[in-house]
């Protein structure tokens, strides 16, 4: 356990030193504030619940940004150490392969959590306290923060897995870009295409299950359908009824997207001889 914390602590300090944490926090915070301030305007209504609107905007923003930040953090976590030649020395220390990998992922997750909680949390607090937020909106916002961290972690796991399957950093970087495109852009387009062409032969419930194959979509579903007031603003009120995944189940799927690639990475790396 101690060795995991030493590695995670080093990654966290690296994140502070190379200004990754401050950079990611600033990007997330500025975009969150911009969305929070501008996002309330188009609803037009006096009875608007600004925090709920902010949750909708932030959820959409996160789907693009958080996977990107996570992939950039972790894509070279194994292959980079091997390429720099630092891996061999580390593994002669009292440190198992599992501890090394867990420490790396823990450190990167911590960086991401810090940036998300500070960046989004600041914006959420400003909107919620300034313009008022009811208990339900606060609940939705808390869910947003928690699932944002989970979304980031799932891409940390995926990137770490990719980083130990390849021999060169540049390949790992390429895979990360491909993963981002696949899950953030291509997947939804493909679903959309299926929705148009396949509505005759594909059962409606099948679309819900297809969405489970993408952590970004699971994240979207959790946040946009989890709370009644958010559902209204996100235009998902109807969709949520069709899809009928309870939030608990969606959270479990999102957790699986963190744990399955992580476990796969651990199992592959444990057998690796350097």
């Amino acid at each position: 356990m101690n060795a995991i914390l030493v590695i995670a602590g080093k990654e966290l300090r690296d994140g502070l030193r190379n200004r990754w944490i401050i950079g990611a926090t600033l990007v997330l915070a500025s975009l969150a504030f911009a969305l929070a301030l501008l996002g309330a305007a188009p609803t037009g209504a006096l009875a608007v619940k600004p925090l709920a609107v902010t949750v909708v905007s932030l959820a959409s923003l996160s789907i693009f940004l958080l996977p990107l930040i996570a992939l950039l953090l972790s894509y070279d976590s194994v292959v980079g150490e091997i390429e720099r030649g630092t891996m061999l020395l580390l593994l002669t220390y009292p440190l198992t392969h599992t501890q090394f990998l867990l420490g790396k992922m823990m450190g990167h997750s911590a960086i991401l959590a810090l940036a998300t909680l500070v960046g989004y949390g600041g914006a959420g607090l400003a909107v919620g306290l300034g313009q008022g937020g009811d208990a339900q909106s606060w609940g939705a916002f808390a869910l947003l923060l928690a699932t944002s961290v989970m979304l980031g972690m799932s891409f940390v796991s995926l990137a770490t897995l990719a980083s130990l399957l390849v021999r060169e950093r540049s390949t790992a970087a390429g895979i990360s870009v491909a993963l981002w495109l696949l899950f953030v852009v291509v997947f939804d387009l493909a679903i959309l295409g299926l929705l148009v062409t396949g509505k005759d032969w594909l059962a409606p419930w099948a679309f819900g299950w297809l969405l489970m194959a993408n952590p970004a979509d699971v994240y979207r579903l959790v946040n946009l359908t989890g709370f009644e007031n958010v559902r209204m603003f996100s235009g998902m009120a109807g969709a949520a009824a069709d899809l009928s995944f309870p939030p608990g189940a969606l959270l479990a799927v999102l957790a699986a997207w963190v744990l399955v690639p992580m476990t796969a990475a651990l199992m592959i790396f444990r057998r690796r001889e350097l």
Binding site: D14, R17, N18, R84, G85, T86, L88, L89, T92
Partner: peptide, 11 residues
């Protein structure tokens, strides 16, 4: 252990 061509984290 001192590996051949020992490397550390540059930063």
């Amino acid at each position: 252990f001192l590996p051949e061509n020992v490397a550390f984290h540059d930063e």
